[in-house]
Design a protein around this nucleic acid. Structure first.
Length: 478
RNA sequence: GGCGCUAUCGUCUAACGGUUAGGACGGAGCCCUCUCAAGGCUCAAAUACGGGUUCGAUUCCCGUUAGCGCUACCA
């Protein structure tokens, strides 16, 4: 039975790198009829926040990603302590009475690599028991079998065969002096207990895995299969962090900016993974069908954002592709909250008529506010009347065109065909080019030169509004 | 410092010893066209460096360099 898990610690908002880890686990589970488990790794009570937990749920909900089983590490402390005890009873761990390092920046425990606190590994059982019984606090450390020349090995699903000499692995902590389990212990005890078959996680855990293999073996459990993912990094090559890189690392930023969840997932999947057949736009099902460890890369992937442009251009492009392939009804529904947020009235029938006009003109849902504003406002914001002057024309031409248009629009049939016929006839009558005819009308009606195709726009706007706005433009020219 | 991982266009990536090193985003140009988009076509743009192995290396091996990760009683 294939079982995978995503195990975030609730110490910050949902990070896009974490989201991608969830997605890859989820895809692997769905691809292979496995079970997806969400486990909150909240053993670090000090740093956990409810806000962070909410952010994880919100983010996953937005991404339309679910799970089959749910656990919280903080509710499984008994299991972790039992595991620690079992390891200790096997003689594979020892008590370390050295007071905890207060200064975390103090990594200068010496020039070389730190392996253990002198004197503690060799403490006799009697002395150890006596001090423990006397109530002296201690951390429990794993006794890495370093005396004999040996290697810890595992076969990574992405990085291949891995080996590390035990001589290079330090005696890591299992239990803190307050009795709380460390991440390494809690994580492995839970993975063993939950019968996780595949651990898919960030490459920052690759070297931790040697310790984890040691714990699984000490627990008498078969280590699961590991598959490490290349990291998502900033353009400067450093790991993405909120402190350094700001909101671009948070999933909700993309939601609020108007990304489609499936488009964003699509983008994230293409960072560090490839279907190897040049496909870019992929549906959820396409991703499930194509996903495998073979497609995962080994080098870190850059999220290509800039300070002036916070979103990776490829993400934006992919979003526009997804927007274009959405059924109009669905796009309208997705757009509605953004229309409302911009302070416009969002009548759903009207929105549905606007959608075809902007569907291939917006890359982010939020752009509806700037691309389609003139459909919603009762009164056009003021614009420079010089904009009304057509190419190779003057104000007089603009005026002439608008007056003529005003006249014919009063009686023209308000359909694409009717409007086109009327305005083209006007252009011919005035002996101006079609473009010179259309532009003043477009600006009068939209308030700017760049807008959706004219006839459809007029049609949606309706006769009354069009005539009103043309009148205003004529006033402005006089 | 020690240990580990990585290295193809600016970015995401393809090429599991033999290709004019492919695709995509972004950039430039042309076409289409009522503007803007969308679409079509074209162009510029990469195998980090040095050694091997081989008839032949992007590909396999070694070294150098660079980047990243771990080296906490954080996860």
């Amino acid at each position: 039975m294939l079982r995978v898990r995503f195990a975030p610690s609730p110490t910050g908002f949902l990070h896009i790198g974490s989201a991608r880890t969830f997605i890859f686990n989820w895809l692997y589970a769905r691809r292979n009829s496995g079970t997806m488990i969400l486990r909150i790794d909240d053993t670090d009570v000090e740093r956990n926040t409810q806000q962070s937990l909410d952010s994880i749920f919100d983010g996953l909900k937005w991404l339309d990603l679910g799970w089959d089983e749910f656990y919280r590490q903080s509710e499984r402390l008994a299991l972790h302590r039992q595991a620690a005890e079992a390891i200790f009873n096997k003689g594979l761990a020892y008590r370390d009475f050295t007071p905890a390092q207060t200064d975390e920046g103090d990594k200068s425990r010496g020039e070389g690599a730190w392996l253990f606190n002198p004197g503690m590994r060799e403490l006799s059982t009697e002395e150890s028991d006596r001090r423990a019984a006397a109530g002296e606090p201690f951390a429990l450390r794993f006794r890495v079998p370093r005396e004999v020349r040996a290697e810890v090995r595992f076969d990574d699903g992405v990085y291949g065969a891995q080996a590390k000499a035990t001589a290079d692995i330090e005696d890591f902590a299992l239990l803190r002096s307050d009795g709380m389990p460390t991440y390494h212990l809690a994580s492995c005890a839970d993975d063993a207990d939950l019968r996780i078959s595949h651990i898919i996680r960030g490459q920052d855990h690759l070297t931790n895995t040697f310790k984890h293999v040691l714990i699984f073996e000490a627990l008498g459990a078969e280590p699961p299969t590991f598959a490490h993912l290349p990291l998502l990094v900033a353009p400067d090559g450093t790991k993405l962090s909120k402190r350094r890189h700001g909101p671009v690392v948070s999933v909700t930023t993309y939601r609020d900016a108007g990304f489609l969840p499936h488009a964003f997932v699509n983008f994230l999947c293409l960072l560090g993974w490839s279907p190897k057949d040049d496909r870019e736009q992929m549906s959820r099902q396409d991703l499930i069908d194509a996903f495998s460890f073979e497609g995962i890369n080994r080098s870190n992937a850059v999220v290509n954002f800039k300070e002036e442009d916070p979103f990776d251009p490829k993400a934006v492009w992919l979003n526009s592709v997804h927007i274009r392939s959405l059924p109009p009804e669905e796009l309208a529904a997705r757009l509605a909250p953004f229309v409302q947020a911009a302070g416009f009235e969002a009548d759903s029938g009207k929105l549905l008529r606007i959608v075809p006009l902007i569907q291939e003109r917006i890359r982010l849902l939020s752009e509806v506010a700037t691309v389609a504003d003139f459909f919603f406002v009762p009164q056009l914001p003021s614009y420079d009347s010089a904009e009304l002057v057509p190419q190779k024309g003057d104000r007089a031409m603009a005026l002439e065109v608008l007056e003529r248009a005003r006249q014919s629009l009063e009686s023209a049939e308000f359909t694409h065909a009717g409007l086109e016929a009327a305005l083209r006839a006007d252009a011919a009558a005035l002996k101006v080019k079609a473009g010179q005819m259309f532009q003043p009308v477009r600006v009068a009606v939209c308030g700017r030169k760049n807008a959706p195709p004219l006839f459809e726009t007029l049609e949606v706007l309706g006769r009354e509004t069009c005539l009103e706005r043309i009148d205003q433009a004529i006033q402005a020219l006089r």
